[in-house]
C-alpha cells in the first residue's frame, strides 16, 4: 500500500507539473485537477460527516454539553435538508441561513475580537518589551492614527506621508521577505511530497 500510494502521489504530481511547462501535458493536468476538485469536495463531505458522528456520539453518551451537540446536529440537518431542497442560493436560504445566522454570528465574533485584540496589544509591552514588541506597537499606532480622519480631513503628515511610507515601503520589505519565505517553504514541502520523502497521506 505504501508503494502504491507513493507511486500515485509522485505520478500525479509529475503529470500536473508537466502541464505547467508543456501544453501537450495540460490535458492530463486538467483531468487530474478536475478529479482533484471532486475529491476535495468529497473530502469536505467526509469531514462534515465526521463532525456529525462525533456530536451524535456525544448525544448518545449523554456527555457534558450534549445539549449543545444536539442543537448543532439539529441545525445541520435542518440546513442540509432545506438546502438540498431549495438549493443554497434560494432567497429563503440566504435570508434565514446566511443573513440570519451565519453572517451575524461570524461578524459578531469578529467584532468581539476587536476588544480582545486591543486588550492584548495594550498588555503586550508588559509581557515583553524588546525591540520587536516596541516597534510592533509603535507601527500599529502610526497606522491607526494615519487611518483616521479628523472632521477636517486627514491628520497632517501622519495620514498623508508617514502612514503610506510605512505601510508601502518599510512594511513592504518585511512582507516580501515573509512571502518569499513562505514560497520557499511551500516549494520545499511540495518537493518533499513529490519525491516521496514526506507522505502526509499515510504509509509511514
Amino acid at each position: 500500500m505504501r508503494i502504491l500510494t507513493t507511486t500515485i502521489a509522485i505520478a500525479v504530481g509529475l503529470l500536473v507539473l508537466l502541464g505547467y511547462f508543456f501544453p501537450q501535458a495540460s490535458v492530463f493536468q486538467l483531468i487530474l485537477l478536475d478529479w482533484a476538485i471532486l475529491f476535495s469536495g468529497v473530502a469536505a463531505w467526509v469531514g462534515i460527516f465526521n463532525l456529525v458522528m462525533v456530536h451524535a456520539d456525544k448525544v448518545r453518551r449523554n456527555a457534558k454539553d450534549s445539549v449543545y451537540s444536539a442543537i448543532l446536529i439539529l441545525g445541520l440537518l435542518v440546513t442540509f435538508t432545506f438546502g438540498l431542497i431549495l438549493k443554497p442560493q434560494h432567497p429563503y436560504m440566504q435570508a434565514f441561513i446566511l443573513n440570519g445566522i451565519i453572517i451575524p454570528v461570524e461578524a459578531a465574533l469578529l467584532g468581539v475580537l476587536t476588544v480582545t485584540l486591543l486588550y492584548a496589544a495594550i498588555r503586550l509591552l508588559r509581557r515583553r518589551s524588546d525591540v520587536m514588541a516596541i516597534v510592533f506597537i509603535f507601527t500599529a499606532a502610526i497606522i491607526f492614527l494615519g487611518s483616521v480622519t479628523l472632521p477636517l480631513g486627514d491628520i497632517p503628515i501622519l495620514g498623508t506621508l508617514i502612514r503610506p511610507w510605512v505601510s508601502q515601503i518599510w512594511a513592504l520589505g518585511g512582507a516580501r521577505g515573509i512571502l518569499i519565505g513562505v514560497a520557499l517553504g511551500a516549494l520545499t514541502t511540495g518537493l518533499r511530497a513529490l519525491f516521496g520523502v514526506d507522505r502526509p497521506y499515510g504509509g509511514a
Binding site: 495594550i122 503586550l124 509591552l125 508588559r126 515583553r128 516596541i134 506597537i137 491607526f144 492614527l145 483616521v148
Partner: peptide, 26 residues
C-alpha cells in the same frame, strides 16, 4: 471606524506606555 481607530491608537499608546513601565518595573 474613525473613532474606533483613534480610540485604539490612544489606548495603544497610553496603555502601552503604562504597561511598558509596569513591565520594566516588574
Amino acid at each position: 471606524y474613525s473613532v474606533g481607530m483613534l480610540a485604539a491608537a490612544v489606548f495603544l499608546l497610553g496603555g502601552g506606555l503604562i504597561n511598558l513601565g509596569l513591565g520594566l518595573r516588574d
